Amino acid sequence: MNHISNRAKIAPDVKIGKFTVIEDDVEIGKGTVIGNNVTIYKGTKIGKNVRIDDNAVIGKQPMRAQNSIFKDTAEKPPCRIGDETIIGTSAVIYAGSVIGSKCLIADLATVREDVTIGDMTIIGRGVAVENYCKIGSKCKIETNAYITALSEIEDQVFVAPCVATSNDNSAGRDPDRVKKMKGVTVKKKARIGVNATILPGKVIGEDAFVGAGAVVTKDVEDGKVVIGNPAREKDDLSVSGKEKS
């Protein structure tokens, strides 16, 4: 049995699976298909021809641990999802997030509060996008990548599987760290290879390339290729991978 509020505004042709909960003031556009056991929290705005698969949770309010450094306890505004977007099985989209049109938020992905995602962007299976992030249009963020809080990713960026980003140089030890925290900034058309690690506050320049497994400890200039640990420009290395004398 479904639990659908009589205050929800649902287009007549919307298809809804079994055991789904739709709360007050939710709006769902025509042609949308909602799977089984989906929860859509109050006020969520869903566009036309959206697909939401089984067990997804849309518009969840954030929770804060007692010792969380983030102290904004006010209720977040409703989640908004653009036309023709696909939300995968068991994905969780928090309140305060805005998802563009024709996006894919794949199975098991999490998009936290205060996140914006541009049109035609892919958030892959198991990806975590933390709070206060901005992601542009036509990006591909692949399986199990981790986008840390306070990051900005511009348009047409490629992030390979298992990339890890970070935002706290003190690793949790500085009591004043919230004022110093900064995520990664990835400029337009940059690419980051599989299993790369980006340290806090680093900038990956426009059309730059970070090689697989690289550890980025300083900014990468526009158009440069960096590899290794710590990451260095490719021209600084010999063919064998050893430093030039």
Results as ranks from 00 to 15, higher is better:
233 E>W: 03
211 G>S: 10
225 V>Q: 10
224 K>H: 04
242 K>L: 03
214 A>E: 00
228 G>Q: 06
214 A>Q: 01
215 V>I: 13
236 D>T: 15
240 S>Q: 10
234 K>M: 15
237 L>P: 01
244 K>T: 01
245 S>L: 08
220 V>E: 02
223 G>Q: 03
228 G>R: 13
235 D>F: 01
222 D>K: 15
214 A>P: 02
226 V>D: 02
213 G>A: 06
223 G>E: 00
227 I>M: 12
213 G>T: 11
234 K>T: 15
210 V>C: 10
237 L>F: 10
219 D>E: 12
234 K>N: 12
212 A>T: 08
224 K>M: 06
244 K>W: 03
244 K>E: 00
237 L>A: 05
214 A>K: 02
209 F>V: 15
226 V>I: 12
232 R>C: 00
222 D>N: 15
244 K>Y: 05
210 V>W: 03
217 T>R: 12
236 D>H: 13
227 I>Y: 01
227 I>L: 12
221 E>L: 05
211 G>D: 06
241 G>I: 09
237 L>N: 05
245 S>Q: 11
222 D>S: 13
227 I>K: 15
227 I>T: 12
211 G>M: 07
245 S>E: 11
231 A>C: 07
230 P>N: 09
212 A>S: 11
242 K>V: 05
244 K>M: 04
216 V>S: 01
239 V>I: 10
233 E>S: 13
241 G>L: 08
244 K>N: 05
223 G>C: 01
219 D>F: 09
240 S>N: 10
237 L>K: 14
226 V>R: 11
209 F>T: 15
245 S>D: 14
220 V>Y: 02
227 I>G: 03
226 V>F: 05
209 F>G: 06
233 E>Q: 14
230 P>Y: 05
237 L>S: 02
229 N>E: 03
218 K>R: 15
224 K>G: 00
220 V>C: 04
236 D>N: 14
234 K>S: 14
243 E>Q: 13
210 V>H: 08
226 V>T: 09
238 S>M: 06
225 V>D: 01
243 E>M: 13
244 K>I: 08
212 A>M: 13
238 S>Y: 01
211 G>T: 09
210 V>L: 11
241 G>E: 05
235 D>P: 00
229 N>W: 03
215 V>A: 08
209 F>C: 14
212 A>D: 00
214 A>V: 02
218 K>L: 04
220 V>Q: 07
241 G>M: 08
224 K>R: 14
239 V>N: 07
239 V>P: 02
236 D>C: 13
224 K>V: 08
230 P>K: 13
226 V>W: 03
224 K>P: 00
240 S>R: 11
221 E>T: 04
211 G>H: 06
212 A>F: 00
241 G>D: 02
241 G>W: 03
229 N>I: 14
233 E>D: 14
219 D>M: 10
240 S>T: 14
225 V>Y: 05
235 D>S: 11
235 D>Y: 00
234 K>Y: 09
232 R>H: 08
222 D>C: 12
228 G>I: 07
212 A>G: 11
209 F>H: 15
216 V>H: 04
209 F>N: 11
227 I>V: 15
229 N>H: 09
239 V>R: 11
240 S>I: 01
239 V>F: 08
